[in-house]
Design a protein around this nucleic acid. Structure first.
Length: 158
DNA sequence: GCCAACGTTGGC
DNA sequence: GCCAACGTTGGC
């Protein structure tokens, strides 16, 4: 199975790359979008690498790197009436929502900001840069992933 | 805080 | 199945 690459959004006020660095590993709960769920459930594999994207942040952009550590399983927060992620349609027999576990790999020395991503012509096809894009879990092409890693290591353009 | 863009819901 | 209303996302 070839390794795949992903981008997952989070609001750092809710859960940041620093939180992931502290925890080491976490369950990526609270995804409530079918397409995002389907990516996690059907296409994500243990070992895939994940760009951690900070939205509604200063700065907005890619803050670091994680790795898929556990394949998709039911997101129990959908069953918990006290959870912000509660979904009354979910049942233990049909939990509807799934999550994966991810583990910390690295925090970028300096985040690759949205502004920086937009300046890079070769990244213009990235899903996250498309107008109106709201998916919180999305695939990333290998060539885009590799360029972003280089940008994170000091901003080399070539 | 604004608001454009989007996904979901529900009446019909 | 259409589509208007609504709630959410997320950059700015």
């Amino acid at each position: 199975m070839p390794r795949r690459y992903w981008l997952m959004k989070t609001e750092p006020e809710t859960y940041s790359i620093d939180d992931l660095a502290r925890d080491g590993r976490t369950c990526w709960d609270g995804v409530r979008n079918y397409q995002a769920r389907n990516y996690m459930r059907d296409a994500m594999n243990v070992g895939d690498l994940v760009l951690i994207y900070h939205s509604n942040a200063e700065p907005t952009g890619i803050a670091g790197l994680a790795r898929v550590a556990g394949a998709a399983y039911p997101d129990h927060t959908a069953l918990d009436p006290k959870s912000a992620y509660f979904d009354p349609k979910a049942t233990s027999g049909n939990p509807i929502w799934m999550m994966v576990d991810i583990e910390f790999v690295e925090k970028f020395v300096s985040p690759v900001t949205l502004e920086r991503l937009r300046k890079e012509k070769s990244l213009s096809g990235m899903l996250v840069l498309q107008r109106g894009q709201r998916l919180s879990v999305m695939p990333v092409e290998e060539k885009h992933f590799k360029l972003i890693r280089r940008l994170s290591a000091g901003g080399c353009r070539d």
